[in-house]
């Protein structure tokens, strides 16, 4: 599978005696929406931090966008977008200033910073609030803006860490439409969530329990394999014997 954009082999992260991520092995194909599911504390965020170059793995192998996670973390960073679990925009900057800042630090040319900023504000229909501080926007708008800035520099892969936490169902729906639109343009989406209904939107998902990947496949395959009507059932069956939750 030379075409995978993410490829890991027994990737592991230990903190002292605690193994947060335990020998995970998987591949993600270009343009795929890959869901990373699991309970809180299952190791989803730690796994994602290793793939984005924020955290150094303890053992195993990992290749992201063709670069090694140990030695080429900085090259990886040029080719990925990331939206962290915690809100990642500056609340004391305006919508426009935030967009310009992130475009600027990714080294986009001046002309493109200007055009992309206007284009994005128009697309998100934020023209009215372009000069408003981000801190005063509703959470749903902030999340959509954060996602858009994360893909402003046209990354190959975008990592989303629980992007829809605390957002109402309508905004979640709109958020997933944005994810689909990005995937249609060829961006690979790597998304963690603990909303099981959301996992149905993914092409493939992996179920993490206690730092290990217990199941991997399309939602349809997993439901068939575990003989469950929905992903919630699959998850409960897998996580029943979890030691961490």
């Amino acid at each position: 599978m030379a075409t995978s954009v993410i490829e890991t082999h027994e990737l592991t992260k230990r903190f002292g005696n605690f193994t947060a991520v335990d020998r995970i092995t998987f591949q993600v194909q270009p343009g795929e929406i890959f869901g990373f599911l699991g309970a809180n504390g299952a190791g989803k965020t730690t796994a994602m931090r290793m793939l984005t170059g924020l955290s150094r793995p303890t053992a195993g192998e990992g290749i992201v966008a063709g670069y090694d996670v140990y030695r080429q973390a900085e090259q990886i960073k040029r080719r990925i977008g990331y939206m962290s679990q915690r809100f990642s925009l500056y609340e004391d900057l305006t919508v426009r200033e935030n967009i310009q800042f992130y475009a600027g630090i990714y080294g986009l040319p001046w002309r493109s910073i200007r055009s992309k900023t206007s284009e994005l504000i128009e697309r998100l229909q934020l023209g009215e609030v372009a000069r408003t501080l981000v801190g005063s926007l509703p959470l749903g708008w902030k999340q959509k803006l954060a996602f858009s800035t994360a893909i402003l520099h046209d990354p190959e892969i975008v990592f989303l860490d629980e992007p829809t936490g605390g957002v109402d169902p309508i905004t979640r729906r709109q958020f997933w439409e944005m994810i689909y639109a990005a995937a249609d343009r060829g961006v690979t989406i790597f998304v963690t969530t603990h909303y099981m209904d959301e996992s149905e939107y993914c092409d493939r998902i992996s179920m993490m329990v206690d730092g290990e990947i217990r199941a991997l496949g399309s939602p349809h395959d997993l439901k068939t394999q575990y003989d469950q009507p929905d992903m919630n059932g699959v998850f409960l069956q897998l996580a029943r014997h979890s030691e961490r939750s």
Partner: peptide, 14 residues
């Protein structure tokens, strides 16, 4: 504290 440093660290800023 507010977490924006993550966003900086995941960017190619040197």
């Amino acid at each position: 504290e507010i977490g924006t440093i993550e966003q900086i660290n995941v960017s190619p800023i040197r």
